[in-house]
């Protein structure tokens, strides 16, 4: 055994024993006030928000304004990235080929499965763990799979470009803002949930605005991350030519 391995094992044992000692000596437990808060949410989410999922209820109702600002911050980050990596000329990548037909068929099946699960996560977000953000991230992964296997050009030929995806994201974000602001018309506070939106539609529980928020956040996150994947997969040479052409 080398000295390095022994050193690593000593370090590991040391860290684990320090952690155990801290746990036994200080006995870290959540303060009582925090526990009361947790109990309140568990007991009252069904009444306040009419959703059995306490996490989604907190994220989109109790602290809904925070989440909307978070979405806006992410949007600004993605738009900033696009502003840096934008190209003036039309990207043409005819030379690049995709992978073999085995990989293509496998990817086709996997993409279908991931997309199905992504929709399920997002649209059941008010009933089961999940919501707009995890669902949208999962859907964006399909684009990241398609780019290396089917090439970027095939996506661009289908009319999927990062500018269009950013437009979709902008529309979804506008819809999300409208859902938040609409209650103001009736004189209620912004981000009001059950006083304005119905809890059931056609006998199905949608928990007021939670379902709408989840849907629009899903679209916004999916299109935003897909746009990032598309503009990152444009090869470096295109940018180099761009810089040369500009001089």
């Amino acid at each position: 055994m080398s000295r390095r391995t022994i050193g690593l094992i000593v370090l590991l044992v040391g860290v684990v024993s320090i952690a155990l000692t801290t746990f036994i000596v200080f006995n870290p437990e959540a303060p009582k006030s925090v526990r009361e808060l947790g109990k309140y949410y568990i007991a009252n989410t069904t009444r306040d928000v009419s959703s059995p999922e306490a996490v989604t209820a907190i994220v989109w109702d109790y602290r809904g304004l925070d989440t909307i600002y978070e979405t806006v911050v992410l949007y600004m980050a993605i738009v900033g990235g696009l502003a840096i990596s934008t190209t003036t000329r039309k990207v043409s990548l005819k030379t690049r080929t995709g992978l073999t037909s085995i990989a293509r068929t496998g990817t086709r099946i996997i993409v279908l499965l991931i997309a199905t699960i992504a929709f399920a996560i997002a649209l059941h977000g008010h009933l089961t763990p999940g919501g707009g953000f995890p669902g949208g991230s999962a859907l964006a992964i399909t684009v990241m799979l398609i780019v290396p296997v089917y090439t970027l050009q095939s996506l661009l030929d289908q009319g999927v470009s990062s500018t269009r995806l950013i437009a979709v994201r902008g529309l979804a974000l506008t819809a999300l803002g409208l859902v938040a602001i609409l209650p103001v018309i009736k004189g209620l506070e912004a981000v009001t949930n059950l006083k304005f939106y119905p809890s059931h539609v056609a006998g199905m529980l949608i928990s007021g605005s939670l379902w709408l928020y989840n849907l629009f956040e899903f679209l916004a996150v999916a299109s935003g991350f897909a746009a990032v994947a598309l503009y990152l997969s444009i090869p470096e040479e295109v940018y180099r030519e761009e810089i040369k052409g500009g001089e």
Partner: peptide, 26 residues
Amino acid sequence: APDIAMTYLAVSVGLYSALLVFVISK
């Protein structure tokens, strides 16, 4: 914490790894 686990998987295994691969390719 199933909610966090789900988000964490989607972001750090899917998006983050894909992002790293894109960056390494450059």
